[in-house]
Structures are given as C-alpha cells and as structure tokens.
C-alpha cells in the first residue's frame, strides 16, 4: 500500500486523541503510531483500535519523559527515518487544580511543562522534519482557556496560551510551505481529565463530538478550530470584555 496515511498521536491515551484515532481508522486503514508515557495503557488503546481496523498497522512508542528535549527529538527523527508522517496530533495534557498551582510551585511548574512546553517541543521536532519533506499536518490541542487568563484556571490557561501563540508563529513560518498547522481549541470536554468538573455538574461536550470536529478540520486543512463551534462566539465575547468589567466577574 503506497499511499496509506501515516498518523502519529502524541498523548495517545487521551480520550479526545483516542476518538480521533477511531475516526481516522474508520475512514481508511492507516499506519498509526501511538506515543505515550505508559505502554500498558497504550496497549489497551492499541488493541481496541486494531480490532476496529484490522488492516491497519498500529505501533506503540513509550516515552516516559515528555519534557526531555533529546528524547523527543530522537523519537521524532526515528519516525521520519522510516517514512514521512502525514498527520501528527499533539494531544497530551493534564488539567491541574488552580489553587494547588498557586500553593505549590512544583505543581505549577509541572502544569506549565506538560501543557505548554512539552507540546511545543514535539511540534518543533515534527515541524523541522515536515518542512524538509514539504508535506504534512501538525494538529495541536490547545484550549479555549488559553484565549484569556481567568482566575479559575490561569496557570493551565497560560500554558495553553503559550501553545496558541507558538502555533501562530509556526503557521507564519510555514505559510509558504505545504505543511499545514492546525490549532485546536476545545471547550470543556467530557474526558477523564475533567471528571472532577463533571462530578460537580458542569455540562461538557462529548469527546466523540470534539474528535469529529478535529478530524474534519484536519481533512479540510483548517488553521484554527473551536470545538464545539459555539466556543468561537463565547470566547469572542470573553476576549473583548473590557477589564474593568471582566475583573468584576468571577469566571
């Protein structure tokens, strides 16, 4: 199979990433590379995906440290040695409790690393190789939380804001190339990461729906997608509320 898609997923056990993988494989058998921190958890995902699409090839790469520059660079270089990657989805992250980040700088630092620095390092390694091949799509999951800092989760928001601003620059750099960079901004989504929000009764979008929007946005080579799409309008308003009003509301 010459023109089989080669898709890499970083943070492959995240609920959104997993649903994206299911949708991609439902479309057509592909070569799928799952990169994650825990191979046991990835095996569960890989077995499931393989049963859903037995003609697909599914490979697991365990990468225990997601913020080690050398390891990241090595993993990505190895992937491209075989054959260029068509799509990479950078999906990992964790939602810290804001008050813990305020009280404990280690937690604060870890949250900034895993949600902000680490996705950038991965994207940069892929960008280098995709630019060389003049082919491919890098899809990064940021968050609506990165659009404006809010008291309830600004450390997480700052990390995601870093990803958003980084993506903007990368898009600028690769604008004349054939490489597409997609910035994904999900609203609060029903995933294990948000189960404490859900327990409190927040209404969350399903990860299936978010995944569907992502897969469609990748296919149509979009630059930026809010998912579900209502978040585009919500954040448009939130971004434009003057701070003398914004600072009076607790969101």
């Amino acid at each position: 199979m010459q023109d089989r898609k080669r898709i890499a997923i970083i943070g492959a056990t995240s609920a959104i990433a997993e649903h994206c993988a299911r949708l991609w494989l439902l479309k057509e058998p592909s070569d799928l590379i799952l990169v994650g921190r825990n191979s046991k958890r990835m095996e569960r995902v890989a077995t499931d995906l393989y049963i859903r699409s037995q003609e697909s090839n599914i490979q697991i790469i365990e990468q225990p440290d997601f913020s080690a520059p050398d390891a990241i660079s090595f993993t990505v270089e190895e992937l491209f040695k075989k054959k260029p990657i068509d799509i990479v989805l950078i999906a990992h992250g964790s939602l810290p409790e804001q008050h813990v980040c305020q009280d404990d700088l280690h937690t604060c630092r870890a949250a900034l690393d895993i949600n902000g620095v680490s996705p950038v390092l991965f994207a940069e390694a892929f960008a280098k190789n995709m630019e060389k091949a003049n082919h491919g799509t890098i899809a990064l999951i940021s968050s609506v939380a990165g659009d404006r800092g809010r008291q309830s989760n600004y450390v997480y928001g700052a990390a995601k804001g870093l990803v958003s601003r980084y993506t903007q620059g990368l898009q600028h750099r690769l604008a004349s190339s054939n490489v597409n960079i997609l910035l994904i901004k999900p609203g609060p989504t029903d995933t294990p990461m948000t189960s404490h929000l859900k327990a409190d009764g927040a209404s969350l979008a399903s990860s299936e729906l978010v995944a569907e929007n992502i897969v469609n946005a990748v296919a149509s080579r979009k630059k930026c997608v809010y998912t579900p799409s209502k978040w585009f309008y919500i954040m448009l308003i939130i971004r434009h509320i003057p701070s003398f009003i914004f600072n009076k509301i607790r969101i």
């Binding site: 077995t47 499931d48 294990p192």
Partner: peptide
C-alpha cells in the same frame, strides 16, 4: 461508559 474498549475478536 469509559470502559469502552474491545479486547479481542
């Protein structure tokens, strides 16, 4: 509903 994986077929 999070236990939504196939194990063997």
């Amino acid at each position: 509903t999070g236990l939504d994986h196939f194990i063997a077929f």
